[in-house]
């Protein structure tokens, strides 16, 4: 198959199958990690951005994008880290936030300005929905997560942090 017969939509549909290794219910599209898709003569060119600068999964994700797309679309794929764009949590789609909640991780609140102490307070519990929660630590099991405690259901939960 040549790239002429492949559409941008088909590339995105295939990208939906490339999941985040740390949150396997979210694809790279859900997370807002894809910043560009170009159809070249003999190859598809993908631009992506990591969520956090030191994310250890970046090269793994790059590799996965390449192998999944090459096998599904039957064409050469190159993947590049886009230096012009930077990831922020508002790039995450509303659908992604629902999937995150169902997975047991509280989604980031929508940011209208900078990250503040206030935006990290009273984060709704993904288990019982209560807002009677407090921030235990702005750092969690991965760089993108914070730890909260729910006073209503007595459980510790993680949140995907808002990022400017």
């Amino acid at each position: 198959m040549s790239s002429q017969t492949i559409t941008i939509a088909a590339v995105y549909a295939s990208l939906e199958h490339v999941m985040d290794p740390e949150i396997p219910v979210l694809s790279v599209v859900d997370l807002g990690m894809i910043t560009g898709v170009e159809l070249g003569e003999a190859a598809v060119h993908i631009k992506m951005i990591p969520t956090f600068a030191a994310c250890p999964a970046v090269s793994y994700i790059r590799h996965n994008i390449k192998t999944v797309l090459e096998s599904e679309l039957g064409i050469a794929v190159s993947v590049e880290v886009d230096k012009q764009e930077h990831w922020h949590s508002n790039r995450m789609t509303p659908a992604a936030k629902e999937k995150l909640k169902a997975f047991g991780i509280a989604p980031p609140k929508v940011l209208s300005g900078e990250v503040s102490t206030e935006i990290m307070m009273e984060v709704p519990c993904p288990h019982c929905g209560s807002e009677q929660t407090y921030l235990r630590s702005p750092f969690g099991s991965t760089l993108c997560r914070a730890i909260h405690f729910c006073k209503a259901c007595g459980q510790v939960f993680e949140q995907f942090k808002p990022l400017e």
């Binding site: 956090f52 600068a53 030191a54 994310c55 250890p56 235990r136 630590s137 702005p138 750092f139 969690g140 099991s141 760089l143 730890i147």
Partner: peptide, 19 residues
């Protein structure tokens, strides 16, 4: 939590150094 915090900040800092 503090163990995790310093470990996470270590990862961030080394990532920034790398960049």
């Amino acid at each position: 939590e503090e163990d995790i915090a310093f470990s996470s900040m270590a990862q961030d800092k080394i990532g920034h150094a790398w960049a």
